[in-house]
Design a binder for these strands. Structure first.
Lengths: 349, 349
DNA sequence: TAGAGCCTGGACAACGTTGTCAGGTGCGGG
DNA sequence: CCCGCACCTGACAACGTTGTCCAGGCTCTA
């Protein structure tokens, strides 16, 4: 007989779902069902001898408690859901990990899904998670109307929004100071002598993009600089179009001498474009990214702390679950300007 | 009365767990329980009028099917588990996302957890996922003994290992050609005239690290170059120690003229160290990373495709679930050498 | 030695859903 | 006019677990 069993053996041998249950364990150990339950859950009131017998049966049968059934009985699932835009985006990795760590500390598992920036997909995911009866939700919203969550909130699903506020419902939200950060970043460029400053950002229907745009406008207005339309490119994220947008504002009738990039993906593409330019163009990006310090010049950024964002949200979620939070709040975390060279270049007309 | 309701209202109004059930919907609609089930699941055999009444009750009560109970009845959970090392590592983001996409295409959700490279934590996570009765598991193993999974495999939990093979059990595995990739990378350096080549990698108990080391040794042996101990640094990953290791092999009695970095984190740190050196040292890294092309010189790497790794594994998982795969297999994906400059620098003694 | 109290173990219902099956209604054909 | 058939609907059990409650046996004390 060969030493390795093929999967066919395994499946046909014991059909899927034919896992041993507490009943089977009880039968084998010659005890009652409830006694097995007690042993499995480490409850008191079982003789050492009985416990040994039960444990033996558990090991022999390869029994593992079915948490689905447990959930049904107990009400809580000890799992939380995280809905974000794209797990592959380096900004969300640390955020997700931070949420996971907090969940782990509370004995909960993390289910997560990517909305791909699509409101319908976000809703679909969120509702699927609610159907699974996750105890709580951390949501980085793609859509701007979350009334579909009303029944869930009523039913007691803890919910915290991150990075962008919820739309048309009253819920906790943890976000970065996008407006203040962008404003400071653009002011930094102005302080270094720039007046024709370009802005490349995402669609203004995305809250963060709108706020950063607002910060850009505010900084320009503070300095009394009228903004020309050709300096702004909104709703542009894919590399090809960002490239074109950057090239246009660099070569137009009143070419910019500096660029403010609305997020990390945009920044990276702009870096590429600027590297090809003959003249030196200043750059400040929103979001820090790895190796920004190793580029020549180093890239000056407005940094937000994704991990802290995630940790703060998750902690708030569990405080909700403990019944400690009564009123939805808006928590805004500060950003930090990190100067590395690209934002300190003087204008070259 | 204020327009916003406090969370206290919501919770005390309807206690947690007091969600409407099909029974409630049935009572309100004046129909039987099973009829509600039929409507909710889109089964046939319900009058339009009855369906309308039921739908009305559903909307009025904010009913949502409890998938936990459904799972209990049906046997499958339509969810799969992904256990990896660290979600925050840029290598795992795309992998995780790829797994998610495949899961989504099969109507399944993804639960994931980070093992933090700790075998105990890996086991804890895997077993927790099994207790939730995930239909399948994609595991990037941290440990090297997976016999604890035997009962689960017997019970029919589909399992695919990724990036590193399972230990002491017979299971599907999808991995990159670490040995061949490293060998090609080091051979590339040798072809450019280097003989004193350093290797900085992770602990050899990690399969990928061991394979890459083996590739390094093979390439050196192919060229008839005896390897000196001082050129190798194993089990080193945190930036501080990588830095020290790199500095030592650059300044020792027989200083290296080129470095092969065993993974992306090591590569990045080595780039930093090399940037501070007076003489030019060649570098080839295992794993590609964003912006590698923008550095001066661009960093030559042996690239593996994390997304393909994840997609391949997930697809295989679902084929297992469909009962189509009978024998565990080992699938090895090729790597690709991407030359960007750093690996083509000549030796400078 | 008898009664009280404690400890251990088991029977039973319930969690919310779905599969099975049988009952009831309306309609068409023989 | 009645039978049979198709169609719709609902009662009931079952999924695997946990909470409640009770029975029986033991020890301890008066």
């Amino acid at each position: 007989m060969p030493e390795t069993h093929s999967r066919a053996d395994r499946i046909s041998g014991t059909r899927y779902g034919n896992r041993p249950t507490m009943k089977d364990v009880a039968a084998r150990a010659g005890v009652g069902l409830k006694t097995v339950s007690r042993v499995v859950n480490g409850e008191t009131g079982v003789t050492a001898e009985t416990e040994r017998r039960v444990q033996e049966a558990i090991d022999a049968l390869g029994f593992r408690r079915n948490d689905s059934a447990r959930v049904l009985r107990k009400g809580r699932t000890a799992s939380i859901g995280l809905v974000l835009e794209d797990l592959a985006d380096p900004f969300y990795g640390p955020l997700s990990r931070a949420v996971e760590e907090v969940a782990r500390a509370h004995g909960a598992l993390l289910i997560n899904g990517s909305s791909a920036e699509d409101p319908d997909r976000e809703q679909e995911l969120v509702l699927a998670l609610c159907a699974r009866r996750v105890d709580g939700l951390v949501v980085i919203p793609a859509g701007d109307d979350h009334r579909y969550l009303e029944p869930e909130l009523k039913a007691g699903v803890a919910t915290v929004f991150v990075d962008r506020p919820a739309g048309r419902i009253d819920a906790d939200v943890v976000l970065s100071d996008n407006y203040g950060g962008a404003r400071a970043g653009v002011a930094h460029l102005i302080a270094h002598g720039h007046r024709r400053i370009g802005f490349i950002g995402d669609m203004p229907r995305i809250h963060t993009a709108a706020e950063r745009l607002r910060g850009y406008r505010a900084a320009m207005e503070d300095a009394g600089i009228p903004v020309e339309d050709s300096w702004m490119s909104l709703g542009v994220t894919d590399p090809g179009r960002v490239r074109r947008a950057a090239e246009e504002m660099l070569s137009g009738p009143s070419p910019v001498t500096a660029v403010f990039a609305g997020n990390n993906r945009v920044t990276v593409t702009v870096v590429r474009v600027l590297a090809e330019q003959a003249r030196r163009v200043a750059l400040v990006g929103f979001d820090d990214f790895e190796l920004a310090d190793l580029l020549r010049p180093g890239v000056t950024v407005v940094a937000q702390d994704a991990a802290t964002l995630g940790r703060t949200a998750a902690e708030r979620l569990f405080r909700q679950l403990d019944g400690l939070l009564l009123t939805p709040e808006r928590i805004e975390l500060p950003t930090r300007l990190i100067t590395r060279g690209s934002g300190e270049l003087p204008p070259t007309d």
